[in-house]
Amino acid sequence: MLKLSQIIEEVGLKSVYLHNDCEIEHGYVGDLLSIVMRSAKENSIWMTVQSHVNIVAVATLTGIRAIVLCEGMEFPEDTLQKAQEEGINLLVTDENAYRVSGKIYSLNVR
């Protein structure tokens, strides 16, 4: 278990919207919403390249606390707005999901 702020600092993520400095227990990688809905655990940080507003609904549903949009992509306005309403933390990085996940894994978030 690690504070989100620690992960952000250690991995060098950029915050787009920070709702709260929650405890992160697990990590998940995936871009297909159907699989994420099925497999992601509560209190996770989720690495993806999917930025459609539905990712916030998926996060709310599964208990994902933070979404990391990878590869230098940007969150569209409606996704940002929905995340603010729902209290989902949004982060971005230029790196790909593999590299970001590796770094977070090495911080003992498994």
């Binding site: 297909l32 919403l33 159907s34 809905m37 539905n54």
Partner: peptide
């Protein structure tokens, strides 16, 4: 039932 999610 939310219609914005994928089906099986």
């Amino acid at each position: 039932n939310y219609l914005g999610f994928p089906t099986n």
